[in-house]
Every structure is written in C-alpha cells, then in structure tokens.
Amino acid sequence: MLAVSLLVLLLVVVSALGVIYSSYKSRQLFSEVQQQNREAMRLEEDWGRLLLEQSTWASHARIERLAKSELKMVVPAPETIIVVKR
C-alpha cells in the first residue's frame, strides 16, 4: 500500500515538473516565434524598399539619360547597321 502511494506521489511530482517545463518551453518558443515574425516583417520591409530602390535606379528614363549623357551612347543610324544573319 505504502509503495503504491509513494509511486503515485512520485508520478505526480514528475508530471508537475513536466507541466512546468512544457509551459516554460512554450513561452520560450512563443517569444521566438514573435521574434521571427518581427524579423519576417523587417525582411519584407527591406524587400519592398529594395525593390523600389531598384526600380528607381533602373527606371528607363534614368538609364536612357545616363546612357546618352554620361556614356555618350547613341542609337546607330540604320545605314550603319549591317545584318549578319537573317
């Protein structure tokens, strides 16, 4: 009888510790999830910002202006074009 009682007591203590551990773990994981969510949000912001930045720098108007003014590029006149392969 006593042995059974002791066993049950032990099991109760073990399960109690288990509850403590799992709720601790869950809190820890939750805060990690929150952190990851924030990180995801931040990366999404970055992505959007970079995409905008890219499209600003690579806008056709700007490229054309730079090609003409800084690189002195011109569209070849038709009579200077030689078709190599049809």
């Binding site: 011109v74 569209v75 070849p76 006149a77 038709p78 009579e79 200077t80 074009i81 030689i82 078709v83």
Partner: peptide, 20 residues
C-alpha cells in the same frame, strides 16, 4: 533591303549622332 554596306576598311563610317 538595307542601304549599301558602308564598311570602309572594316570600320563603319562615322555614324550620325542621331537615331533615324
């Protein structure tokens, strides 16, 4: 048909600075 081949000694004649 493109106009005459304007290659001069393997180098194109100085092109116009304007697109047609």
């Amino acid at each position: 048909a493109l106009p005459v081949n304007r290659l001069v000694n393997g180098k194109p004649v100085k092109g116009r600075r304007k697109s047609a």
